[in-house]
Computed example of a mutant assay.
Amino acid sequence: MKSKNRAFLKWAGGKYSLTEQINQRLPEGKRLIEPFVGAGSVFLNSDFDEYLLNDINPDLIEMYKIIKRKPKQFIIDAKHYFQDKFNDEATYYQLRKEFNLSQDPYQRSLLFLYMNRHGYNGLCRYNKSGGFNVPFGRYKKPYFPEKELLFFSEKSKSATFTCKPYHKLFHYLRDDDVLYCDPPYVPLSKSASFTSYASAGFSLDDQANLARLARESKCNVLLSNHDTTLTQELYRDALCDKIQVSRTISSHSTTRQPVGELFALFSAQSNKLNK
């Protein structure tokens, strides 16, 4: 059995546990495009010749570019913040403040990784002013992902990283591309909405627009989302199937109940017939 590769980031909604199911549903192609790359678990566990990896979060993409360009120096500098003296609540909030005030991409990248591993539940969340606002996580000894960083840097030699609105990625398509779209999910309830991953949220209009772009795409598009009445309607022209998965974004283990995960494949051939 082929070994799996973990992302170096902790990530709410990450796809590490579902990479086998996703790969089974991804059509063949030369280049994989991910408009919502997140922590990159699908990228790290798939086998395409090229990758175009995008995210709306500039801190995330800038860090990926730096790690691709100079991984060894980044690892040396990032490891500095994983000493015991930095695993302290007051220190965390001071460094979070420095991050929010900094304009230096390299320093922000180092602190982004530090806060990802020391902050609460691996969340990535910003306030309306664009300030990172995840609280301290209180972990005994946060893990420094050196092995995962090295693998990411090696794999990223075949990747191009961009920071654009998701719909812009549909302008760059080639016939042999495959898109995997993992947008912020449709909330299961009014209290379950989690759209503050970047300073701009992902609205229901965005959900509908993404479905339209997938339907009209010149290449194959696979989408993931919650299995709800809304997504079933949005993806009605796609080949859909679902599985039961355990969600881990809840802070209480007793409330982490299995939910339906919907996969929708819009095939390029069907898209042409529907036009």
Results as ranks from 00 to 15, higher is better:
E28M: 12
D49R: 05
Y172S: 13
A39W: 09
K97P: 04
M1S: 13
K68A: 03
R108D: 00
E62Y: 00
F48V: 08
M115N: 10
E154N: 09
A12T: 15
L273P: 00
R138S: 10
F161P: 01
F266T: 01
Y185T: 02
F82R: 09
G137D: 07
E216Q: 11
Y180G: 11
Q83G: 13
D88M: 10
P71D: 09
E98R: 15
K30V: 09
E146Q: 14
A7W: 14
K190D: 11
P58V: 01
E34R: 08
L213T: 03
A198D: 12
I76G: 00
K15A: 06
A238F: 07
K190H: 11
R108F: 03
I76C: 02
F152T: 00
L53N: 04
R212C: 01
I33P: 02
F36W: 06
L113V: 09
T229E: 14
G130S: 11
I56A: 15
V134T: 08
A268E: 01
E20L: 14
N121P: 04
V245W: 07
L95C: 05
F136M: 00
F136A: 01
D47F: 10
G29R: 02
Y51V: 12
K141P: 01
K85E: 14
N225M: 03
S203D: 10
Y166G: 01
L52I: 01
E146D: 09
F263G: 12
K97R: 15
G119H: 07
T195I: 00
R117I: 06
K15G: 05
K164F: 06
F263Q: 14
R69Y: 08
L179W: 05
N87P: 05
R212E: 01
C181G: 02
H118S: 03
T255P: 04
I75M: 03
F263E: 05
S199V: 15
V42D: 13
L179T: 04
T160L: 13
V42G: 09
G201Q: 07
P105V: 03
K128R: 07
C124A: 11
P142A: 14
R25S: 13
L213A: 07
C219T: 12
P135G: 12
S270Q: 13
